[in-house]
Design a binder for these strands. Structure first.
Lengths: 350, 350
DNA sequence: CTGAAAGCGCTAACAT
DNA sequence: ATGTTAGCGCTTTCAG
């Protein structure tokens, strides 16, 4: 609360200059921590700026430097179809953590249809509204990476890593899905489960495809484990549908693994409807952990993921790319399993 | 996909002008739908602009007009403490719906501590980063409205309406909390409940205070209904703590109402732990509805709210204020009750 | 190391 | 109805 703060905004660099008794250019240098000005002047300028409550005019700076100092994210409405709400908020938190550090703004844009996304990118690029974008929920044959390359707009990917997909020069940050899948199946196998079914997310998400491959490989490695999968749209209702389907087969699985926590919780209800008990009749594991996994009866065994960290590193990778760095591909450690009451050895051992 | 789109961005108004064979000013007029240019030229300009893939440079426009064409929201991290995740995403969706219509960008900013919010507002104002802000989760004696007035930054409130609070000239959009509270207690009373306890949100949220008053008044009106309340931090764990507390009293309530869906779901677990049955031993009602209320056993009776609409109208009110309009105070209809299996008449009728 | 001046792309007041 | 021009506030060359 220094003396001058009652001025309250809209102070120009010119006023700071006269206040400090130097030129506008000197102020600019001083404020941006550049050479070309003595330490003494710098100190005086900074003092004057603080005293007057100066803050840079975003538009003027952008216009001069041709940088928006902002990054954008386009989401498809409704969010719940693409990401679970809690995953989304954690992701947002991670992105912001990194952007705040760099004093870069986050511009959010929701579109009604996936196809509109690229138009937004084009507009953003043309208008220099953002310097780059962060992508999530890549789909099979997702047109966005190539579009970004064609447009010339930098980007970075949360998930949807390098394995089987042309990233078009974008950076990516993935979790170790192979390790996570091995962790889950290995854990169940150690409990003697030999028939595991998975209630997965939407088949067209790359995210899901990664897990498809990871689970299949992990099951293969174990050798004596039957593994099947049903895809859903991530909603509770669809998860229940899939769960019912799997449990209604002749020779139902002894363990069900879910691609998110909501569907896992919903499975407990299905069990109840079908007169089955968890974990007596079948075990349940959720890929993501959340409060939800701890308010059910029984509590749900879950793989703890780090979406906020993943998002934070993605934002960092984008900022590096904006600074001229090469694309990077980070893989975070596999999730850690928290065993709870929803898992135990199957009734009939194989 | 017109012919010229391969140009791909960064087209200036000057290029459009030469392409259309007119002056820069004429292009500006034509593009912004203003008088001062014939329909014929306008058409030609628009065609040229589309052909070249022109989009306005955000910074240049802002600098010229002294408007950012953006509104901001500052949230306190972690979001889950202040708003339930699903409420937050719905709110975001509503805000964006309105802003997109007006081609206004949304800038999101997360801070670690509530106190930092006003600094961000000040910086945003000084730098013309946003034209206005949307506030949520007003607290008791919240300093933000007055700060905005002092700073000179327009704003609008999601919730925290006009009743008992100096809004400092801000617009607000509220749900009819009084009506909702009456709806819930009336419904329970009609089932013959005469002893209802509430597991509420954080006491320092104005939001919660509104409900406190609404429930108290509704209980008073009914006359023969005992009502008590315990405040929580909205988390599942704290909700369970409060639920346990209430059910452990001598003469426990026959119905519990919850300020959010997560705590309501968590209460079912508490019931199980305590050897109680829902709705046999006590009924459960949630203020917000969500998928969660439909995957529990029993399903949870809930008040359906319209957070997206509330947020949308708030954004609209803000845009109106930016256009010079007077502050407005909208009150949305009370929530509608969806009765499910978690409620029924109490065992011992009063 | 410092000061003057040009220019980023647009809008809006001016002159034509 | 159209074209000319002067800024918006900042950064950044270029002389001093």
């Amino acid at each position: 609360m220094s003396a001058g703060e009652q001025h309250g905004g809209r102070v120009t660099i010119r006023q700071v200059a006269v206040h400090a008794g130097v030129s506008e250019a000197a102020v600019s240098y001083a404020l941006n921590g550049r050479p070309g000005v003595s330490e003494q002047t710098r100190a005086r300028v900074l003092a004057a700026a603080r005293e007057l409550g100066w803050a840079p005019n975003i538009a003027a700076r952008s216009l001069g430097t041709a940088r928006a100092n902002a990054v954008g994210m386009v989401l498809v409405r409704p969010p719940r179809v693409m990401v679970v709400d809690s995953f989304f908020t954690q992701m947002l938190s991670g992105v912001e953590a990194e952007l705040n550090r760099a004093e870069v703004a986050l511009v959010l844009h929701l579109v009604d249809a996936f196809e509109q996304t690229i138009d937004v990118y084009r507009r953003w690029y043309a208008g220099r509204a953002v310097d780059g974008v962060i992508l999530t929920d890549l789909r099979h044959d997702d047109p966005r990476p190539a579009a970004l390359r064609d447009i010339g707009l930098p980007g970075a990917l949360i998930g949807g890593g390098p394995d089987d997909f042309d990233l078009c020069g974008l950076s990516s940050v993935d979790a170790d899905v192979a390790g996570t899948a091995r962790g889950i199946l290995g854990y169940l196998r150690a409990l003697r489960h030999r028939d595991v079914a998975r209630v997965a997310g939407p088949a067209d998400l790359l995210h899901t495809a990664q897990r498809d491959a990871a689970y299949a490989a992990a099951a293969d490695d174990l050798g004596d484990l039957r593994y099947r999968v049903v895809h859903t749209n991530y909603s509770a209702a669809d998860g229940m549908r899939a769960t019912r389907e799997l449990l209604s087969t002749a020779g139902p699985p002894t363990a069900l693994v879910f691609d998110n926590d909501v569907m896992a919780a919903a499975a407990l209800r299905v069990a109840h409807e079908m007169g089955l008990a968890v974990p007596a009749d079948f075990s349940v594991v959720a890929w993501d952990d959340s409060d939800l996994c701890q308010i059910t009866v029984p509590e749900i065994t879950a793989m703890v993921q780090t979406p906020a960290l993943q998002a934070e590193l993605t934002a960092r990778a984008l900022l590096r790319a904006l600074a001229g760095g090469e694309p990077t591909h980070v893989v975070l450690p596999a999730g850690t399993l928290t065993a709870r009451g929803s898992t135990r050895p199957p009734k009939r051992l194989g």
